[in-house]
Amino acid sequence: MVLLFEKLGDYTLYYLEQAGRMGLFLCQCLWRVVTPPYRIFPVVRQLNFIGARSIFVIFFTGGFTGMVLALQGYYTLRKFGSEGLLGSAVALSLIRELGPVTAALMVIGRAGSAMTAEIGIMRNSEQIDALECMAVDPWRYLIVPKFIAAVISMPLLTAIFDVVGIFGGYLVGSLMLGVNGGTYFQGMYQSVHWVDVEMGLVKSLVFGLLIVWISTAKGYFLHWERSGGFGAEGVSRATTSSVVLASVTVLIWDYLLSAIML
C-alpha cells in the first residue's frame, strides 16, 4: 500500500516536473523570439523545411480530403434532397475543422518528428552542450527559428489545404456526381463567413505553436526522459512520444478552441 502511494507520488512528481520544464521551455523560447538579435536566414531555412517542403503532402491530403468530403457529403445530403448545399458543407468542414487539424497532423508527421529527432540526436551526442560551451545560446540558435517558421507556416499550409480541398470537392461533386458547379460555389460563398475563416486561422496558429513546442522540447529534454533517453532507441522513443503527444494535444485543443469560439 505504501509502495503504491510512493509510486503514485513518484509519477505525479515526475509529470509535474515535466510540465514545469515544458512550460519554462516555452517561456524561454517565446522570450527569445521577441528579443533581439533577430536573424532572418535561419528562419528562412526553417520556413523552407517546415513550410515549403510540406506543400506537396498538404496538397495531396487536402485534395483527397475535399474529394472524400464531397463523396460522403453528397451521399448524406441526397437523402435530404439538398445536394445544393454540398459546396457549403465541404467548405465549412474544411475551413473550420478539417483543414487546420489535418494539416497539423501532416506537419507533425513530416516536420515535428524530424525536429524531435534532430534535436534529440544533438542532445545525445553532446552537440547542444558544445553549443553552450561555445557561449552560443542553443535556444536561439536551434529552436527560435523553428518556432517562428512553424507559426508562420501553419496558417499558410492550412490555407493551401482548404483551397485545394474545396477544389477537390468541386472536382468530385460537380464533375463526377453532377452537382451544378455554380451552386457549389454559390452555396459556399453564402454560408462561409469571416468568423469561420477566423476560427481556422486561430486554430492553425495555435496548432503551429503546439507542434513546434512539443516537438522541440521532447528532443531538447531527451536526457530527462523517464524511459531513458539514450542512444538510437532513446531518440526513436522520444520521436514516437512527441508525435503521439503532439497529435493528441492538437485534437484536444481543437475541441477546446471549437468550444470557446462557437
Partner: peptide
C-alpha cells in the same frame, strides 16, 4: 555564465562535432 564561457574552448570526449 555565457560571459564566462566566452573564454572557454572544449574538446569533448566524443568530439561533439555538428554532424550535419
Amino acid at each position: 555564465l555565457k560571459a564566462v564561457r566566452r573564454d572557454f574552448g572544449v574538446l569533448f570526449q566524443n568530439v561533439a562535432l555538428f554532424d550535419s
